[in-house]
Design a protein around this nucleic acid. Structure first.
Lengths: 343, 343
DNA sequence: CTGAAAGCGCTTACAG
DNA sequence: CTGAAAGCGCTTACAG
């Protein structure tokens, strides 16, 4: 109907009988131009609905103004809320966001990074998959000069800005809360053991038990993958021994839901037979049966902060003297799943 | 550390003492090249970790290989699941996806489209905001030759491929189910009245009542915006009249959750005092208190189909003779929130 | 203050 | 079969 072809600087130049250079200068805001010419050009540009071609700009400036994001699963409340935070900051600073999902697979994470770097992204924000134990693909980003910010599941081995929550404290508080409610046989269901968040949450859990002189029992600590089978197996295993737990600290939202599901199948009531605390900030928590007590992570803020740090890295001329790890605060949202109704 | 600068076709040419043209041809798979030269070039390219610069390609071919997506809110199960479907198809066909959120605001929808078109996206997939009643911004896409696919909240006025579910049938089935359970005073809580999905679901609801010789009462049909206040007001309003409903059909997931929240505040029990059916495919539905009966939409498939149709439009040389509207099937997932326990 | 030229990385008619 | 040239849309030293 209209112009299939977008208007370019050349079109404006032609119409005004000026050179493209002059038009570019007028639009860019360089100083070496007569104020009158500039006004004229800007007016015509507006009139012709000119908008600069970002692709040409990218080619010239070797910047794509695109940020890559890799998360395990976009259709997961933690991830989508974080992404919302990332997007808000990114867009306000003129960046666009391209999202990849690792589906908790190391393989997919590596491929995603390759695709993303071949797209010439300006920087990457990621939380590693449940399988990731080798960080060469992240190290490679370094080699290519692509800034990186990690959040949630970070790792020691990579030196860069990171955004995490106080996992240790969160798990500690959750466990103490259960103890205070009178539960004494508290189990812990976690994801892959080599992940930083797993280790920190595990430490918080253990320390809470110790500080209350409760034993830390190895077979009350189980790790699982992300398939339904694995969670089911792990949870059932907890109840096979002679001494059954009376409460569970689940280290992620998915695991908490998994626990609810399996406990229900096993006809164990929450919290009467087994109490439960998860890590989650799902707004649906309070509408669950039972409503779910959870260590709440400030997901949106985590996303925002990650994006801010990344853009800082992208736009600073020199690499920072030292990398920061921002630790956000969690809060324990107490609902019914952890209440001792028999007390 | 390594090469800050990515290797280009020129680098390969230099090393092989060939011209960039030849290298390009070898890599692109043109026929006019000696098999031996090609093999050599490809080998060196691999060795040097060459990957074509998509930005240069975009500039040349006037294609960005980027698809824009606009949804109300990414941190919403319906949206994120649909996006997951879109991404899967997009990536498998070499496209990347840039997401914008309208936050249910017409204003933001318009701005997003502007930003997206200035990004030179190859096509757009969107579901309109709750506020959108004017479609000039979508029509403008036409003018610019940017293909469009609408899903979920579509509109008659724009002629293009669309992906919807059988909203009429879904609401009809949901309402019939309630009637079969013995509920007779069934209300309907919906979003903006001018949206296609609102109208179709409303029709299904009304027709179900009529076909069972139940009256359609105007004050049992309420529409709300997306803020919590609006939902609260709408639901409370339902119970102000002399004749109170004994069941509600909520036309989206958000509204269903909103109903649960407000009914709880009003100390009305679900389903004993008021039964509830929503539209939702949230995997948490069955873990809610009470578990939520819902018309399930095949979200992932909707996303996949939308992306397929869009890419078809993008890659076909000629505009299609006629636009299609794909209607997906919903299924009614019956849980506790709609059971008549008093019967 | 304005313009011509070169270049970002790539492709593709056009010569040879 | 291979290379030189032009061009995608833009910016920016370099002249004038």
């Amino acid at each position: 109907m209209d112009d299939q072809h977008s208007v370019t600087i050349k079109d404006i130049a032609q119409r005004l009988k000026l050179s493209p250079s002059t038009v570019s200068r007028a639009l860019r805001g360089g100083t070496e131009i007569r104020e009158e010419t500039r006004r004229l050009i800007q007016e015509v540009a507006r009139e012709m609905h000119y908008s600069p071609n970002p692709i040409a700009l990218s080619l010239k400036e070797k910047k794509s103004k695109i940020i890559g994001v890799i998360v395990p699963e976009i259709a997961n409340n933690f991830c989508s809320a974080t992404i919302a935070g990332i997007e808000e900051v990114a867009y306000s600073r003129g960046y666009h966001v391209i999202i990849f999902q690792s589906h908790e697979l190391y393989e997919r994470e590596v491929t995603s990074i390759q695709l993303l770097t071949s797209r010439r992204i300006d920087g990457l924000i990621l939380t590693i998959s449940n399988e990731t134990r080798n960080y060469d693909h992240l190290q490679a980003l370094r080699g290519k000069g692509i800034p990186l910010v990690m959040f949630d599941r970070v790792c020691e081995e990579i030196k860069t800005h990171k955004v995490v929550v106080n996992d240790y404290q969160g798990a500690f508080d959750a466990t103490c809360h259960l103890i205070r409610e009178g539960f004494t046989r508290i189990a812990h269901v976690a994801i892959a053991p080599y992940l930083s968040i797993t280790q920190n949450r595990l430490k918080g859990y253990e320390e809470a038990l110790r500080s209350h002189h409760l034993p830390v029992k190895k077979n009350w600590i189980v790790h699982c993958d992300f398939d339904a089978m694995s969670i089911e197996k792990a949870v059932r295993q907890l109840f096979e021994g002679s001494e059954r737990p009376d409460a569970i600290v689940a280290s992620t939202e998915r695991l908490a839901i998994g626990c609810i599901k399996v406990l229900r199948e096993m006809k164990l009531r929450i919290p009467m037979d087994v109490a439960l605390v998860g890590f989650s900030d799902n707004p649906l928590n309070k509408f669950m049966a039972p409503s779910l007590t959870a260590v709440q992570q400030p997901t949106f803020d985590i996303g925002q902060k990650s994006a801010e740090l990344l853009i800082e890295l992208i736009e600073s001329k020199t690499p920072p003297k030292n990398y920061r790890t921002i630790e956000m605060k969690t809060t324990l949202d107490i609902q019914d799943s952890s209440r001792n109704l028999t007390g």
